[in-house]
Design a protein around this nucleic acid. Structure first.
Length: 288
DNA sequence: ACTCAGGTATTAC
DNA sequence: GTAATACCTGAG
């Protein structure tokens, strides 16, 4: 594990803030110089933008170029996706303009499952805190730039952790969910490897829903934000409900809008790019 | 003191 | 099936 560096030039659709603060990830933090540092898999990376360059450096398990290309979804043409979505209507056009640098990361499936279970009825600072404490306590240490970082613990590393210990880390009522889901994955009651090879998104969603603490919204976030990469799903949280109602439904009380209704509109308008559309709309509505 | 935050599981009609 | 309700925690 040695330090590596990789520079990408003239990369389109790549803005640090859009990528790291659009709500898909929890372990990237802004630094004093405006760059971001984060831990993913067994890597610690700092990403900096300088003129037409994106500079990646840090401790990388494998070749940094390949690692970065995979994680940052560089093989996908976001320019094409955006131009397709922008044609749908002016709302999409505006939201894409706002979040033009978004890319959907290829995050580890297991980490994504646990992270979004923790996200339920929770706020972002607290979610991040819990995940950091979990990693610090049960993950592996990696040193970079004189600082210690911790990988997200594997299922095996959480094998013997008790509900009480989770509670002590501040997980709240999600402690049991984490405990049960970890057991189910260790027992292969739900097989993550098989899941990645299963092209039937509906089936995969059903499997995810069988996990403790995973409901419809969390399942869709996992499908979209993990390396399962299913772009046709449409996670509906409070923000998406809000923006969809404001733009397309216009009911007095957004809470009275049914999920089915939102899903129908999303499917009709956005089709197999619904997940991306959701991300632009979500980010725009929450931040702008 | 009290509300709220990237929902889910449980219970009751 | 769909609606109502409890639920840890800590920041504002």
């Amino acid at each position: 594990m040695k330090e590596q560096k990789y520079i990408l030039e003239n990369q389109k659709s790549f803005e640090l803030k859009d990528i790291f603060e659009c709500g898909q990830c929890f372990r990237w933090n802004i630094q004093e110089d405006g760059s971001y540092t984060g831990v993913f898999r067994n890597n610690v990376l700092n990403v900096k933008k300088h003129k037409n360059q994106i500079i990646f450096q840090g401790v990388c398990e494998k070749d940094i170029k390949e690692t970065v290309e995979k994680y940052f979804d560089l093989h996908r043409d976001y320019e094409e996706i955006k131009s397709k979505l922008a044609k749908i209507d002016n709302n999409m056009k505006t939201s894409i303009e706002y979040g033009k640098g978004i890319r959907i990361l290829n995050q580890d499936l297991w980490e994504t499952i646990i992270s979004f279970i923790i996200s339920a009825n929770n706020n972002i600072p607290r979610i991040k805190g819990i995940i950091e404490r979990l990693s610090e306590k049960y993950g592996n240490e990696i040193e970079y730039n004189g600082q210690k970082y911790y990988t997200f613990p594997s299922p095996e590393q959480l094998k013997d952790v008790t509900v009480e210990e989770y509670r002590k880390l501040g997980l709240g009522f999600r402690d049991v969910r984490l405990y049960e889901t970890t057991k189910m994955i260790l027992n292969k009651k739900v097989d993550l490897i098989e899941m990645k090879n299963n092209p039937n998104t509906t089936k995969v969603r059903e499997e995810l829903l069988s996990l403790s603490g995973v409901g419809p919204k969390v399942a869709d976030c996992i499908l979209l934000f993990s390396d399962l990469k299913r772009f046709e799903v449409f996670p509906i949280d409070v923000w998406v409900r809000r923006v969809m109602n404001d733009l397309y439904i216009k009911q007095e009380d957004e809470n009275k809008v049914s999920k089915k209704q939102i899903e129908k509109i999303a499917e009709e308008k956005f089709g197999d790019l619904a997940g991306l559309a959701q991300q632009y709309l979500f980010y725009w509505r929450r931040e702008a």
